[in-house]
Design a protein around this nucleic acid. Structure first.
Length: 475
RNA sequence: GCCCCGUUCGUCUAGUGGCCUAGGACGCCGGCCUCUCACGCCGGAAACAGGGGUUCGAGUCCCCUACGGGGCGCCA
């Protein structure tokens, strides 16, 4: 049965890979994988003024970071302009397109008039049947597609269902600008055809375009791909996602300390579901993904849920793997040099040993780094305000008494350290908390940290004792 | 303005005419656990936009209204 599925992700490089684009890419990738097909990448760089090399790199990096791979080399749309022009010429020769000499002013007047009359503000077809001999001198014409005026164009959309457009509402759009450059509408159709795209999965802001593109496919006598228009992602307030919300580049999510696996899970569940499944592995996504289960209404982006997923994946990940993620992340952080400097060479090992207590508490890699800070502080520590309160006369007294006991712990490990602390607390008739809290303050400079026994263990006897001494000698 | 699409707890959603006194997840609230913070566990509040139909029976089908979104470029 199987015609191979070929999807494509086709961003225009006018900015970073934003979250909506990332989801579109993910859906295309999943759909292709689910059907043993392939996803192609096409850079829609026909807008020369706004396309940048920087944006292209950002998009490629973003996809790689998300681990969404594409087949072969990216196709650059602008490089195919000659081919697009040939198709426009063919349409012209076949009488399916025509030269339009309308000026921008005339077009604007046309739109204003239509709107005033309560009609769709499209091109009115002035040059559609006008005698080319009437063409004004010195004006280079644009080429417009001669769209059908009657009947309807129907899209059998895999997400939206059957969507019907009356042809009278669709105007004669430009396929070749007066400077000879092809427009998006033409380029997309030619490229999708030439690239053998079987399924177009994209944002539903393209739904109307699908109708126009279908008309072009028909005029060219080519088979149109199957369309699936997925609803856009909205911000927390229900309005279109803007920078203010979370329409950040995916690299921003990386810098916030999110894991690719978590972002993929979050994104796939945003607008798509598989029963009550929430935690979905990449393999499961691939085997379960289908276009029909994509919802038809826009979803709001929710950082809190992303965080929760990220926390889950962090906790499930091996200590070693987290460290390697951290190593990859740190250079991208704003304070990279400082961090690298403080962690040093041995820091990574220490980090890995402290990881069980750290990852349990972190939502993001950045959180994790933050709560690991106690490992890399230089003595003497400067306790924060709350920690200082714990190091009052009473606290210092406790620590002073505890010190010799700790010094004689042997061997120095979590179990022995715990035994020592518990025995000390019991013998001196203190609750464990009365001992642990001042100790935590002295060891980390804060009132919260991983378990105190783990902190002692990871710091090592020498450093731990020194930090305690630092905080008790000024009493 | 015109065209298209949508509307289940705060959010993401399950639900395809009877299994729904509407389920799950995140968040929120309360409790337990406890060396802090988390985790974990237990419990709780919380939704079918409104109105008409169709049907023995509607969250599920139809219509209208309201609200939300998208599109309407010689941008993509």
């Amino acid at each position: 049965m199987t015609e191979t599925v070929v999807t494509r992700f086709a961003p225009s490089p006018t900015g970073f890979l934003h979250i909506g684009g990332a989801r579109t890419a993910l859906f295309n990738w999943l759909f292709a994988k689910a059907h043993g097909g392939k996803m192609l990448l096409r850079i829609e760089d026909t807008d020369r003024a706004r396309s940048t090399e920087e944006a292209i790199q950002a998009i490629l990096d973003g996809l790689r970071w998300l681990e969404l791979d594409w087949e072969g080399e990216p196709v650059y749309q602008f490089a195919r302009a000659e081919r697009h022009r040939d198709v426009a010429d063919k349409l012209l020769a076949d009488g399916k397109a025509y030269r339009c000499y309308a000026t921008p002013e005339e077009l604007q007047a046309m739109r204003d008039k239509a709107r005033a009359e309560g009609n769709s503000p499209g091109y009115d077809g002035t040059w559609r049947d006008r005698d080319p001999a009437l063409a004004p001198d010195g004006i280079a014409p644009a080429i417009r597609f001669k769209a059908p005026c009657e009947g309807e164009t129907i899209i059998e959309d895999r997400v939206q269902g059957r969507v019907t457009f009356a042809n009278k509402d669709l105007d004669d759009f430009v396929i070749l600008r007066s400077d000879g450059s092809p427009t998006y509408m033409l380029s997309v159709v030619v490229d999708d055809h030439d690239m053998g795209i079987t399924h177009v999965v994209r944002g539903d802001d393209h739904l109307t375009n699908a109708a126009r593109q279908t008309q072009l496919f028909e005029a060219l006598d080519w088979q149109a791909p199957i369309y699936a228009h997925v609803p856009l992602i909205h911000g927390p307030d229900g309005a279109k996602l803007s920078k203010r919300h979370g329409a950040l580049g995916v690299e921003a999510y990386r810098e916030m300390g999110y894991l690719p696996v978590a972002l993929r899970n979050y994104l796939v569940r945003l607008g798509w579901s598989h029963g009550n499944a929430e935690i979905i592995s990449t393999d499961e996504m691939i085997s379960w993904f289908n276009l029909e289960a994509i919802g038809r209404s826009p979803a709001r982006f929710d950082f809190t849920k992303l965080e929760s997923l990220n926390r889950h994946y962090l906790r499930a990940m091996s200590d070693e793997e987290i460290v390697s993620h951290l190593k990859a992340l740190v250079p991208h952080l704003p304070n990279a040099d400082d961090l690298l400097d403080r962690i040093g060479d041995e820091g990574w090992d220490q980090l890995e040993r402290a990881m069980p207590g750290l990852k349990e508490r972190a939502k993001t890699l950045v959180d994790l780094l933050e709560s690991a800070e106690y490992l890399f502080l230089k003595r003497p520590l400067a306790p924060d305000e709350k920690a200082s309160k714990l190091l009052d006369r009473d606290g210092q007294e406790t620590l002073a008494q505890l010190l010799p006991e700790l010094q004689s712990v042997d061997p120095w490990n979590v179990t022995e350290v715990e035994n020592c602390l518990r025995a000390f607390a019991e013998r001196t008739d203190r609750k464990l908390g009365k001992v642990a809290q001042p100790l935590r303050a002295a060891l980390t400079g804060r009132t919260t940290s991983p378990g105190i026994f783990d902190v002692l263990d990871v710091l090592g006897r020498e450093e731990a004792v020194a930090r305690i001494v630092d905080q008790t000698k000024h009493s």
